[in-house]
């Protein structure tokens, strides 16, 4: 059975990247594969796509470090994986292979977000991201945790409840509150729903 013996520290792994030692990738995979796979899987629900996502993550990480020095390697990787996964999700949606969970999580916002398109999505995304950040900065730990688990990492409600050691209805209550509060915040920020 597998244990966690001899897993390198984040600092040691980052040093391998800086030394351009290719074992950096295998060490990253050894330490974070399971976690990153689950990040991708929550969005894609397809192992082949997840595998490709992971490979792309490692490729991008190899190119990003140096010069970047991740503050928290796990988050650095998760962010890359998450974004790649959503890009693939977008592609899959276009070819009508829609995974369940992310659709479910976005369905939380049914009636909240439209299906229309707007121009300059990158700029808009940054602006909306700023508003969401402002909102989350002043919210409780629990609410933050639920928001990021659900909408950043597309975790199922059941898993969030399990992690928080509470019931699913409690998590759903948080989601409802998030919808209400965030909706108000976005309206105040002039964001058209």
């Amino acid at each position: 059975m597998n244990g966690d013996k001899n897993i390198l520290s984040d600092e040691a792994i980052i040093k391998l990247y800086f030394d351009r030692d290719e074992t950096a990738i295998s060490e990253t995979d050894r330490k974070y594969r399971q976690y990153l796979f689950s990040v991708a899987y929550n969005v894609l629900h397809n192992d082949a796509d997840c595998e490709e996502c992971l490979n792309d993550t490692y490729y991008r990480t190899w190119n990003a470090i140096p010069p970047n020095v991740p503050k928290i390697l796990k988050l650095f990787l998760a962010k890359i994986t998450r974004n790649l996964a959503f890009d693939r999700y977008d592609e899959a949606k276009r070819s009508k292979r829609i995974p369940a969970e992310i659709s479910d999580s976005l369905d939380d916002f049914e009636g909240f977000v439209s299906t229309g398109k707007t121009p300059d999505e990158e700029m808009e995304a940054r602006e909306i991201g700023r508003i969401i950040s402002d909102y989350l900065k002043h919210t409780s730990d629990k609410r933050l945790y639920v928001f990021i688990s659900r909408y950043y990492f597309a975790m199922p409600v059941k898993d969030i409840a399990s992690k928080l050691n509470c019931s699913e209805s409690s998590v759903n209550k948080e989601i409802k509150a998030i919808k209400s509060e965030l909706s108000q915040k976005l309206n105040e920020g002039g964001i058209d729903l």
Binding site: N83, F86, I102, K117, E121, I128, G129, I148, Y151
Partner: peptide, 10 residues
């Protein structure tokens, strides 16, 4: 899609 992108910008 914009919402997903925006969340990614936090």
């Amino acid at each position: 899609k914009l919402f997903i992108k925006s969340v990614g910008q936090i």
